[in-house]
């Protein structure tokens, strides 16, 4: 059987942070491969470089050295513009602190990525309603983020992340601000998405949440120390 090329292949990735006194090595010659359709959890102690890795994978940040091949394209040295372009068509983000725009309603927050990718207005309405329905927050479509509970806000954030049908979803501690019941709902949603074919990479501190994934990558001081395959 022919081995399919991985969606993500990073090799010897390095990231340093320099402040006046110290140089922090956030990522130290890290090499990882992630295949299309995988659900990967990244774990490790605080400060080991999980968020840094996720930001680079999401093309929000660029590495100082090493290679990052995304869908057969080397993106490590892409300009900001090119990265933004690639990002908006392929990647959805879910954050611990939701990061919804306070001035926009639920509907408008979810609609935003479609605007940036230039989807026509009638189409947008249809697609936003579709996801809102799926996330069961349709009845809240005209509310503002402040009027929602944390769990609801995270569902809106996930709706926003998936509305563009991205191939990859990056989630940085998506359940970190939620109680366990709301947290489980979010994990179910992510699992559903994964079953429909979306690749998911999630940073988490919770062994419980990590169990939803296929594979756990454990980081320590910017290096991968262990990989557990879930069964």
């Amino acid at each position: 059987m022919m081995q399919e090329a991985p969606m993500i292949k990073i090799t010897n990735l390095e990231k340093f942070y320099r402040t006046e006194e110290v140089e922090t090595i956030a990522l130290n010659k890290l090499s990882i491969e992630i295949a299309t359709g995988e659900f990967v959890a990244i774990m490790g102690p605080s400060g080991c470089g999980k968020s840094t890795l996720l930001n680079i994978l999401g093309m929000l940040d660029d590495p100082d050295a090493g290679s990052y091949i995304f869908n057969d394209i080397e993106v490590a040295h892409f300009t900001e513009r090119k990265r933004a372009d690639l990002r908006k068509h392929n990647i959805g983000f879910v954050f611990q602190s939701f990061n919804l725009i306070d001035e926009l309603t639920v509907f408008e927050n979810v609609e935003l990525p479609l605007i940036y990718t230039g989807v026509a207005s009638a189409d947008r309405v249809k697609r936003v309603e579709e996801v809102l329905d799926k996330m069961q927050i349709m009845h809240r479509r005209n509310h503002y983020p402040q009027q929602l509970s944390g769990g609801q806000q995270q569902r809106v954030a996930i709706a926003r992340a998936v509305v563009n049908k991205p191939k990859l979803i990056l989630a940085d501690e998506p359940t970190g601000n939620l109680d366990s019941s709301n947290g489980n709902d979010v994990m179910e949603l992510l699992t559903d998405l994964n079953e429909q074919g979306t690749t998911i990479i999630m940073v988490t501190h919770s062994e419980h949440d990590a169990r939803y994934s296929h594979r756990i990558i454990r980081l320590l001081d910017g290096q991968s120390v262990m990989e557990n395959i879930m069964v």
Partner: peptide
Amino acid sequence: VRKVLGSD
């Protein structure tokens, strides 16, 4: 947030 969502 806008930048993450693809605004340049």
